[in-house]
Simulated scan of single mutants.
Amino acid sequence: MSSAAIFVAELGDKSQLMAMTFATRYRAWQVLLGITLATTVVHAVSVLLGFGMGSALPTDWIGLVAGLAFLGFAAWTLRGDHLTEKEKSKAGRLAGSAVLAVTVAFFLAELGDKTMLATVTLAAQHDWLGTWIGSTIGMVLADALAIGVGLMLGKHLPERLIRYGAATLFAVFGLWLTVDALLDLF
């Protein structure tokens, strides 16, 4: 039940757009691993909140921090990265930085998101372990779908357009999260 609920809640969500964007820049397995790590942790926290404390998370402040972080991601993406030949060969062997970037971005994006709140609600009403596993699987499956779409787009679009598009998406999400948090706070 929780897999289906979270899969549907994730469709069209900002994290699916992030998955598409990351899939154009990193290897699909790196993006999927980062999403899985972030989702596992966020949904564990969600289940703990739902099972133990209800919805006591200060999502307004977390949303503000996440929004500002996304604005930073936008600037970083717009600046672009250039690798030397030595760095390119090293990047092929070492996937840690890509996985870490995806994990941190998804972790921040999911804090206070509708899928987190849905998981909290489900955990308050159902078995915590089943909710945790099911919600994590549902989200990873929905974002795996987005990775596939991102890979198809990445093969047909110039790198410069992808970079500007990604920066724009990060800026839009950052502004959206920041404004939404500020409206809730004040």
Rank of each mutant, 00 (worst) to 15 (best):
A4I: 11
A4M: 02
I6N: 06
F7S: 08
A9Y: 03
D13A: 12
Q16I: 04
Q16W: 02
T21A: 11
A23H: 12
T24A: 12
R25T: 13
Q30E: 15
V31I: 09
L33S: 11
L37P: 09
A38T: 05
A38P: 10
T39C: 14
T40H: 00
V41K: 01
L49T: 08
F51V: 14
M53H: 06
S55K: 09
A56Q: 12
G63S: 10
L64M: 13
L71A: 04
L71H: 09
L78E: 07
D81F: 02
L83A: 15
K86L: 15
S89Y: 07
L94T: 12
L94N: 15
A105R: 10
F107G: 06
F107D: 03
A109P: 01
A109I: 00
L111F: 09
K114D: 13
T115F: 05
L117Y: 02
T119L: 03
T121S: 15
L122A: 12
Q125R: 15
H126Q: 14
H126N: 14
T131V: 01
G138W: 00
G138L: 00
A142Y: 02
A144Y: 00
G148V: 02
L151F: 02
L153T: 04
L153E: 00
L153P: 01
K155A: 11
L161D: 03
A166I: 07
A167L: 07
T168R: 07
F170G: 06
L177Y: 15
T178N: 07
T178P: 04
V179R: 06
V179Q: 11
A181W: 07
L182C: 08
